[in-house]
Amino acid sequence: MQITVTVNGQPYTRDVEPRLLLVHFLRDHLALTGTHWGCDTSNCGACVVHLDATPVKSCTVLAVMCDGHEVTTVEGLERDGELDAVQKGFAECHGLQCGFCTPGMMLTARWLLDNDPDPDEGRIRETISGQLCRCTGYENIVRAVRWAAGHEAGRAAAGEGAREGTRT
């Protein structure tokens, strides 16, 4: 069946099987391979993307359910050549090793900061607790999110409108 999904601001129209998972739609049909997958049971969160500004596990959403909706993936975090504060935070604080969980972690972190600009450690841990990282022991992911919270005040003031428009 034919669907139109807006991904990272760009509409894509494709013919897909009704059973096609969103994660496969993004990876195999749109070649957006930044979104990963790591399990069959909705446990790992490697596949997290935003669906209309809410994080979802894209292995647990059918592509057809996204018809007429907006999806943001890791490829959409960078704006006009400027990295998102969350991306900078992950690099700055060594919040990634193999990088496989990273896109999902960053999208969840982005959502958290959009809703709570100054989350404490407990809130961050709870928010990412539906996602697994096998490399970092989480410590530096938490630090990365804290770093991002501390470094986006100026940017938020300057670009508040744009961010609000697409993310909340």
Partner: peptide, 19 residues
């Protein structure tokens, strides 16, 4: 020192086997 490899990973531009 920050990692050189992070530039691609934080942009979703790594190439894993399924990519």
């Amino acid at each position: 020192m920050h990692r050189k490899e992070d530039a691609r990973f934080i942009r979703g531009r790594g190439t894993y086997v399924d990519d």
